[in-house]
């Protein structure tokens, strides 16, 4: 596997489990990203979004201490920020408007998630360069 590079990318991380949050931060930073967060509460995610004009990507745990992350996901989608959802839930509990978002089902390795973020950003870049080709179905497959 090639080295993942997210050099200078600003990646927002929302995760309520300290150990996972810390691992993910570590992995993203190892890949060169600037991590916004991690934060464990929805309130704090919303605050981060408000604070940072530039967010290149976001890794969001669906359930943050019992609160669903959708308001934050909505805001980020509106801003065109590529999203990655980490979740222990079934697909059925994802609302329709976020059904297309790439999901990393727990327990996903932090490095896998970092890679997925990188892919997401590459895909986005590709869409912005050319006429956006329909994403291949495999892109939508859950990682892990």
């Amino acid at each position: 596997m090639t080295e993942v590079t997210l050099a200078g990318r600003r990646v927002l991380v929302a995760e309520d489990e300290y150990m996972l949050a810390d691992d993910l931060r570590q992995a993203l930073e190892d890949a060169g990203a600037v991590v916004l967060g991690p934060v464990p509460l929805l309130r704090e995610v919303l605050a981060l979004i408000g604070e940072h004009a530039q967010i290149d990507a976001a890794v969001l745990d669906v359930n943050l201490c019992g609160e669903m992350v959708w308001p934050a996901a909505d805001l980020l989608s509106e801003r065109g920020v590529p999203l990655l959802l980490t979740t222990g839930y079934e697909r059925s509990s994802i609302p329709g408007r976020h059904a297309h978002v790439t999901r990393c089902e727990k327990p996903a390795a932090p490095m896998e998630i970092a890679r997925a973020v990188a892919r997401e950003l590459q895909a986005r870049a590709a869409t912005q360069l050319r006429t956006p080709p329909p994403a291949s179905p495999s892109d939508r497959q859950p990682i892990a």
Partner: peptide, 13 residues
């Protein structure tokens, strides 16, 4: 589901 998967993630970590 959520808890179990979280627990597995913790174990991995």
């Amino acid at each position: 589901q959520h808890r179990t998967r979280n627990l597995l993630a913790v174990v991995r970590s």
